Simulated scan of single mutants.
Amino acid sequence: MSYTKVAIGIILKKNKVYITKSNEIKYNANIWEFPGGKVKENENIIYALKRELLEEVGIIILKFNFFQYKKIFFKKLKLYFFLIKKWKGQAHSKEGYKYSWIFFKKLKFCKFPVFNFIVIKKLKNIY
């Protein structure tokens, strides 16, 4: 069975995390997400993470740690979450999405894809 790999960055700034909300036209309209995207064929997961965050958020990653792995069987996805602790540039939405810096404890009140809540719970326990 072939899975689509997705690199996801959890961008941290003190006790806040960067989240983005997709456009109304897209499939996941009105759902908050951590930025990232699909790994291209023959692309390294780390390169994909760096490429996606530069394209979507406008930052160059300087320091990161692997955080969580999640396989979503019904969607044939492999999600790789990374904590982004240091970057260069001003984090903003380059693709016209809404974005916010939100306190960790308020993440539970935002509408996220269901499989993100395991990550959010783990974040809450760390921060």
Rank of each mutant, 00 (worst) to 15 (best):
K88A: 10
W32R: 01
G37V: 04
S100A: 12
K21V: 01
F117G: 06
S100K: 15
K108Q: 14
I8D: 07
E43V: 05
I61K: 00
V17L: 09
F115V: 04
F82D: 05
Y99Q: 07
I31N: 12
R51E: 14
F103H: 13
K106G: 03
K40M: 08
Y80H: 14
F103V: 04
W87I: 06
W101D: 08
I102H: 11
I84L: 02
S22V: 05
G37P: 02
L123I: 15
S100G: 03
K26I: 01
R51Y: 10
N15T: 13
I60A: 11
Y69C: 05
L123G: 08
G9R: 13
Y99P: 01
F73H: 12
G89V: 11
T4P: 00
G36D: 06
E55K: 14
L123V: 12
H92C: 12
K85S: 09
F104G: 10
I61P: 01
I46L: 03
Y27M: 10
K108E: 13
K13N: 15
Y80A: 07
N28F: 11
K85G: 05
F115S: 02
I11E: 01
F117Q: 12
F104W: 13
L49F: 06
I11R: 04
I120D: 12
I8N: 07
E52W: 01
K38W: 00
L53Q: 09
P113C: 00
F112V: 05
G96H: 06
Y127K: 12
I19F: 00
K75P: 01
M1F: 05
E95K: 14
K78G: 00
V114R: 11
K105V: 11
T20A: 09
V119T: 15
I25W: 05
K70Q: 13
L123P: 08
M1Q: 09
